[in-house]
Design a protein around this nucleic acid. Structure first.
Lengths: 206, 206
DNA sequence: TTACCCTTTCGACCATTGGTCGATACCTTT
DNA sequence: AAAGGTATCGACCAATGGTCGAAAGGGTAA
């Protein structure tokens, strides 16, 4: 079986390059060079350039997903608190992606979105079942009143991914804050919780 | 000034090609050939391949946006009804994009998402202000109770774009239905409207 | 008609890319 | 030492997005 050494070397290289350039402008040869291996070897570990991206996304969310899955069983913690913890974990990993050069890269501003698309997909696929489970527990506990847990989970995840990723639809800090506050309010009213009771979710932002 | 004839010929060609292939596999030469003009001419009308895509998205949503803007002033129609009408208009235009060949295109299934990203961006940017205005009117009328109209508008648009576009996070018809029903329920409870009162929004789906 | 000029059209051309391939080095195992 | 699978490589290929100088078209003024 292929060594995981080189595999991660490649991912490291891509991550490094991602800090300064958007994916479309990163060539496979460049990744190889940065990783210090031959270009051919890349294709020994990955079937395509796109697969490298996907693997990187998966690797970056491995830890938060682990955390989330563990949290799903910790029924001693209130559901909404666990939700907040999950978001927090995701947020941290999410930031590793985009240390966006503050240089206002003229055209390429939003081209980075290609990877965030993968990221959105990954988040929804992996996190939705976990969050659904937690919401279900909240419903049983009587802390959440809503009859479509899966839908609720997905809505929350979609909005959070799109807004926190902030590259699919670029917006200012204030706009993001506003939208997320709106989401919290909507959640409070929608799950029959008093206004302000979910405010701690806001900690994620900043 | 450049004739709009050729300009639209190019857009038509791209739209035609889009029916059977995903963008990444459509070459500029191909577009030129389909449009019946030389490749060089393409770059006389558009600065880049990406710009063609953006122009196509914009053109396809010109009509529904027009409709939406008109609707924004029709205060005689109830706000939620107008919202439904806008979604309906968008839905129709959205379908022109993806007459997805039913052929289960092996790998390329979700690669079409590149264009839906533009589409998401376009929808949010253009439609959010309009929808916000309508919601504001609803608030004044006392039909909607929510203190963050802009956020509400954005949340709705994000979820709708992502789920109706259905390429950023591929899902089955049933899942889409479930999520949208959840959104409607959330909207009802969140805006202090009785359960079932917004069910007519469901007409969009199918 | 001729001369001029600006717009439009073109396709050969270029640099670069993602991906392939045969060669070859490396390691165990026999 | 022979064998055979595993890993590594970079020259190579077809194709792409984009450039460019040339030239066609067409309007105007003399």
């Amino acid at each position: 079986m292929p060594s995981t050494d080189k595999y991660h070397q490649i991912l490291d290289a891509l991550q490094e390059l991602l800090k300064n350039k958007n994916i479309q402008t990163i060539s496979v040869s460049e990744i190889a060079q940065t990783a210090g291996i031959g270009k051919g070897s890349i294709y020994y570990y990955f079937p395509s350039k796109e697969a490298i991206m996907e693997a990187l996304v998966a690797r970056n969310y491995e830890k938060p997903l682990e955390t989330a899955r563990t949290l799903a069983t910790k029924t001693s913690i209130p559901p909404f608190t666990r939700m907040a913890m999950i978001f927090q974990a995701c947020r941290i990993s999410s930031e590793e992606f985009s240390e966006q050069k503050t240089t206002t890269s003229t055209t390429s501003a939003q081209e980075k979105s290609f990877i965030h698309q993968k990221y959105l997909n990954h988040i929804i696929t992996e996190l939705k079942p976990v969050l659904t489970e937690i919401i279900n527990q909240g419903i049983e506990l009587g802390e959440i009143h809503f009859d479509r847990p899966a839908a609720l989970a997905e809505i929350v995840l979609i909005v959070l991914s799109v807004k926190l990723g902030n590259t699919l639809v670029p917006a200012s800090k204030e706009e993001i804050e506003e939208t997320l506050q709106g989401l919290i309010t909507l959640l409070e009213k929608g799950t029959d919780n008093p206004a302000g009771s979910l405010n701690f979710l806001t900690l994620n932002i900043k």
